[in-house]
Simulated scan of single mutants.
Amino acid sequence: MSTDAVTEARRQLEICNACRYCEGYCSAFPAITRLRAFADADITQIANLCHNCRGCYYACQYTAPHEFDLNLPAALATVRRESWEEYAVPAVLGRVFHTRAWAVTAVLVLGFALIVALMRAGDGAGFYAWMPHSVMVAIFAPAFLLPFAALALGVRRYWRDVGGTPVRWRHVAAASKRTARMADLSGGHGEGCNFEQGERFSQSRRYAHQLILWGFLLCFASTTSGTILHYLADAPAPYPLWSIPKAFGIPGGILLTLGCGWMLWLKSRADGHLSDQPSARADTAFVALLGFVGLSGLALYALRDTGGMGPALALHLGAVFALFVLTPYTKMAHGAYRFAALVRDAQVKEAQAQAA
């Protein structure tokens, strides 16, 4: 992490800690007010607690043109992005993605789609006429497992640096509750955040996040149930409309597509100077990729009995492959780091309560 980003974040946090006007806004501000001095690890933890809702900026009396020139959302966003790059395995891939997000995403999606189109098997039925099941497993198993292993290593390094202690179920439960409710996007008074509305409050970003989260989980449940049916029930894809994979996958694809489209629209309305520009561009590319995974999956189902199935399958598999490979370096990783930050915050709160 650069010294400049941490130094600037520390300067702003010290002013915020003296003011404390925003103490109840989100998980970041109680964490700020518990401290008298800010070590580098403290700043990393606070940055990952911040959800960039921007309410503190619009409430602050020390933003420009005041001489303090506070812009805490942008300062913490820069630290957050640099922390993700530093913890990424290997770190260089995190920096490359944040520098050339759209190009990297396009190359992975189109490149793998071209490979699928060129390797048509010519036998089998449905999807497997284009890519045999054994080949699909041989490619996607490591494409899924290795990036998640790399992400786990990064989160482990983060956990060690912020002083995490052995995790108990109650800490995970507290973090899970805040995550499921998207509590840190609800604003200090439950009116929402100011992400795309300036000084006005809105729940839009919170609801868009929930659509994406639950859409992704339903799609994951669809893939998992299909795997179980394939190996344990000898029932390979494709599956009919009234089947467990489709009962999960179709609603999941719809929620994922709608949520990502809504989020892209909100990002287009947001004030750009309140974020870190490299991570903002990378986030937009990732949300577009995630939305395309949902949309291409729905298109694949609609076109499965037509001549368009092959191209649809190639593009869908290319998008899924890119999503997996880029997991440790995209906003997908932010979920892991922020969840770890919430678990650590639950530990600190418990220790503080026990000491009182």
Score class of each variant (00 low, 15 high):
Leu326Met: 02
Pro142Trp: 09
Pro236Arg: 05
Ala175Trp: 04
Ile139Ser: 04
Pro236Trp: 07
Asp271His: 11
Ala282Val: 09
Arg120Gly: 15
Ala59Gly: 12
Gly190Tyr: 11
Thr7Trp: 11
Tyr58Asn: 01
Asp184Arg: 01
Phe248Val: 03
Arg36Thr: 05
Asp42Ser: 10
Gly124His: 04
Tyr128Asp: 12
Ala183Glu: 12
Tyr207Met: 12
Ala175Arg: 04
Ala322Lys: 01
His189Lys: 07
Tyr158Phe: 15
Gln61Lys: 15
Lys349Ala: 14
Ala125Lys: 02
Gly297Pro: 04
Phe292Trp: 13
Ala233Ile: 06
Pro73Gly: 14
Ala41Asp: 06
Leu255Arg: 06
Glu191Ile: 10
Ala121Cys: 04
Ala113Ser: 13
His189Gln: 14
Leu118Asn: 14
Cys56Thr: 00
Thr44Val: 11
Phe339Ser: 12
Thr306Phe: 01
Ile115Thr: 15
Trp265Cys: 05
Ala37Phe: 05
Val79Lys: 10
Met332Lys: 12
Ala121Leu: 00
Gly124Ser: 06
Pro245Thr: 07
His316Val: 01
Leu76Asp: 00
Tyr207Glu: 05
Thr7Asp: 15
Thr223Trp: 04
Ala351His: 14
Gln277Glu: 15
Gly24Met: 03
Gly192Ile: 07
Leu153Thr: 06
Thr330Ala: 08
Ile254Ala: 03
Asn17Glu: 09
His171Val: 02
Thr284Ile: 11
Ala312Glu: 03
Met309Asn: 13
Asp4Leu: 14
Val167Tyr: 11
Phe339Trp: 09
Tyr62Cys: 07
Ala288Arg: 00
Leu108Trp: 15
Ala173Leu: 13
Leu315Glu: 08
Glu14Cys: 07
Asp234Thr: 12
Thr63Leu: 07
Val293Ser: 00
Glu82Gln: 15
Ala183Arg: 08
Asp161Thr: 12
Arg205Lys: 14
Ser27Cys: 06
Thr99Trp: 12
Glu196Phe: 01
Asn71Ala: 06
Gln61Glu: 12
Ala5Trp: 02
Val104Ser: 11
Ala75Ser: 15
Glu23Ile: 11
Pro65Met: 03
Ile212Gln: 04
Ile254Glu: 03
Ala117His: 05
Asp305Cys: 08
Gly126Arg: 00
Ala302Asp: 02
Ala285Lys: 07
Ala183Ser: 11
Thr224Gly: 03
Ser275Ala: 15
Arg206Val: 06
Phe220Thr: 14
Phe38Arg: 08
Ser225Val: 03
Arg200Lys: 10
Val287Ser: 03
Lys177Leu: 13
